[in-house]
Design a protein around this nucleic acid. Structure first.
Lengths: 232, 232
DNA sequence: TGCCTGGATATTGGATCCAATTTACCTGTC
DNA sequence: GACAGGTAAATTGGATCCAATATCCAGGCA
């Protein structure tokens, strides 16, 4: 029922139509759709965000757009320049390293809190997600699967704020991952690490699992930094 | 001037007057002032945030207030209930533990990145801030000094996003710290830890410094959790 | 020729106005 | 007397309107 082109061709119009009915206030809807659009690269880094245009695209007035932009500003996804408008936040090697440092700090903490409370269902789901990743070629879907895999392992941490932060930065990293993926191709080493991570979780070995996560994050960050530095 | 129908605390007016000239857009100004008001307890947890009242208090229309509220929502300082209004985010033992877990993860990471780049000026400033804390009785000022002390030690990490996150959660913790301070009094143990932390930084001993920070955060969190649990 | 100045234009920031939803209260009935 | 229904008031969400500011281009002056 969904041919590749349906969910693959994520132009702004499709993304809007898909999300419209799910939200009760226009602001919520615009905020969620724009966040997705930015994270998926539909709105590329540096793109100017003209309120009037966005309002027309969403079929609302400028006001919900403005409120949504403010929320995204607080999440560092857009930048405001007073009286000059908002732009999609730029990406850079420094920012990538910044996000990597945050992930390397937060994710082991979440994993450690979650590890012992993971159910067999959780582990089964994680296994399934790894398998799906093997079969997936689209960078967008891949990023989502990767995010869900990690979040599944952290999900029992019982710390909503911590998990929200982890998810937020996992998503932020996706902006880079997608970039990297389409430029370099995805390398299987990451999948090996996923398997190793899952094995450590099954064994309940927190130290080993955290170690793998940290290395996983750092190594991805370094590769990306090198790539971004290389192209300027 | 402020009659019974004014629902906000009386010294909100002072806070507003103090901050007004510093910002160029009304939204920025309102956002900063409200954040400070919430963190300082001027707007207590659970307080309903009537847009009309706030607009009148700030001398602006409802719109900058709405945009500011959206930004604060993204920072988890206020909660929106559709068509029912916004309230100041509640505090709870769980949330305190949540913030503690985040700080315990982020702050050692920031410290480790910053430690070797600290200048003698930084260390001198940190020393001064500890001394000021000894002399300070007001919980509000104390919280600010504590925050500045910590941030001084992290300031050379060279990771803007990480530092912003740390500062944000340090400030969030302040909401609890202030609460604790006025209920329990401040205990000198924390100051001892500050001295020990500074000594480790001077010595360039990252492991020891991180260890102290983690224990510092965890112990504050536990004491606070116990206190909050105790009162319901 | 190059730089500065001034005005026109586009775009955002802020205010006001209208609609939609929720809540509280009042009334009527069981 | 209590509960259900409905209506009115209050408040938010959204749209439109106006003002303030930044950019861009043209023209004058050194």
């Amino acid at each position: 029922m969904s041919h590749p082109s349906d969910r693959q061709a994520p132009d702004l119009a499709a993304l809007i139509a898909r999300n419209r009915p799910r939200f009760r206030t226009a602001t919520e809807f615009v905020e969620a759709a724009m966040r997705e659009a930015i994270l998926e690269g539909v709105l590329p880094a540096g793109a100017p965000l003209r309120q009037e245009d966005l309002a027309a695209a969403f079929g609302v007035s400028r006001m919900p757009v403005r409120e949504a932009l403010r929320q995204l500003e607080a999440r560092a996804l857009v930048e405001f320049h007073p009286h000059r408008g908002a732009v999609v936040a730029e990406i850079s090697a420094e920012d990538s390293a910044d996000i990597g440092a945050i992930r390397a700090a937060l994710e082991p903490a979440a994993l450690r809190l979650s590890l012992l409370h993971l159910t067999t269902d959780d582990l089964a789901l994680a296994t399934e997600l790894i398998a799906e990743m093997d079969a997936e070629a689209d960078p967008g879907r891949m990023g989502e699967l990767n995010r869900r895999f990690h979040m599944t392992l952290y999900s029992r941490a019982g710390r909503p704020r911590l998990l929200a932060l982890v998810e937020q930065h996992l998503a932020a990293a996706d902006r880079y991952l997608r970039f990297q993926f389409s430029a370099l191709g995805y390398h299987p080493r990451s999948q090996d690490e996923h398997h190793a991570l899952l094995a450590a979780c099954r064994a309940g070995d927190a130290d080993a699992a955290c170690d793998i996560v940290v290395r996983h994050v750092i190594q991805a960050g370094e590769q990306l930094s090198a790539f971004l530095d290389g192209r300027g």
